[in-house]
Amino acid sequence: MKSPNELRKRRKLRVRSALLKHSNGRPRLSVHRSGRHIYAQVIDDAKGVTVASASTVDKELRSSGKGGADSAAAAAVGKLVAKRATAAGVKQVVFDRGGFIFHGRIKALADAAREGGLDF
Results as ranks from 00 to 15, higher is better:
96 D>P: 01
82 A>N: 14
56 T>D: 13
79 K>Q: 15
17 S>N: 08
110 A>M: 00
107 K>T: 05
101 I>R: 14
11 R>F: 15
92 Q>S: 08
44 D>V: 15
98 G>T: 01
18 A>G: 03
56 T>V: 10
11 R>Y: 13
93 V>T: 01
78 G>K: 01
102 F>Q: 09
46 A>T: 12
19 L>D: 05
48 G>L: 02
90 V>L: 00
98 G>Y: 05
109 L>G: 02
42 V>P: 13
24 N>G: 04
15 V>I: 15
20 L>Q: 09
98 G>P: 00
104 G>S: 10
48 G>Q: 07
42 V>D: 09
107 K>P: 04
62 R>I: 15
36 R>L: 12
30 S>E: 02
8 R>F: 13
16 R>S: 12
3 S>N: 11
51 V>K: 02
44 D>M: 15
3 S>I: 03
96 D>K: 04
115 E>I: 10
91 K>C: 01
101 I>G: 07
93 V>L: 01
8 R>M: 11
94 V>E: 03
120 F>H: 07
2 K>T: 10
92 Q>L: 04
45 D>T: 11
53 S>L: 11
13 L>H: 11
38 I>G: 00
13 L>S: 14
14 R>D: 14
89 G>F: 00
44 D>Y: 12
30 S>D: 00
31 V>L: 06
11 R>Q: 12
113 A>T: 03
92 Q>E: 12
47 K>T: 12
45 D>M: 08
97 R>G: 01
13 L>F: 10
37 H>V: 14
55 S>H: 12
14 R>I: 11
33 R>T: 03
43 I>K: 14
17 S>Y: 04
84 R>C: 08
47 K>E: 14
37 H>Y: 12
42 V>K: 07
29 L>M: 00
57 V>E: 15
103 H>P: 11
66 K>H: 06
119 D>N: 09
88 A>Q: 01
60 E>M: 09
84 R>E: 12
9 K>D: 10
97 R>Q: 05
115 E>N: 06
42 V>R: 10
8 R>H: 11
55 S>R: 12
40 A>Y: 10
112 A>D: 00
75 A>I: 01
45 D>G: 09
98 G>A: 03
62 R>K: 14
80 L>A: 13
83 K>A: 15
53 S>Y: 13
30 S>N: 04
22 H>A: 12
9 K>G: 07
43 I>M: 14
103 H>D: 12
21 K>M: 07
61 L>A: 11
27 P>H: 02
120 F>M: 06
111 D>W: 05
94 V>I: 05
68 G>N: 05
17 S>E: 13
40 A>E: 06
67 G>I: 04
28 R>H: 07
26 R>F: 08
91 K>M: 03
27 P>C: 02
63 S>T: 13
11 R>P: 13
83 K>L: 14
24 N>R: 00
120 F>Y: 09
31 V>W: 08
111 D>P: 07
36 R>T: 15
1 M>H: 15
12 K>A: 15
5 N>T: 11
71 S>T: 03
70 D>S: 06
3 S>D: 10
33 R>F: 02
6 E>G: 04
101 I>K: 14
28 R>V: 07
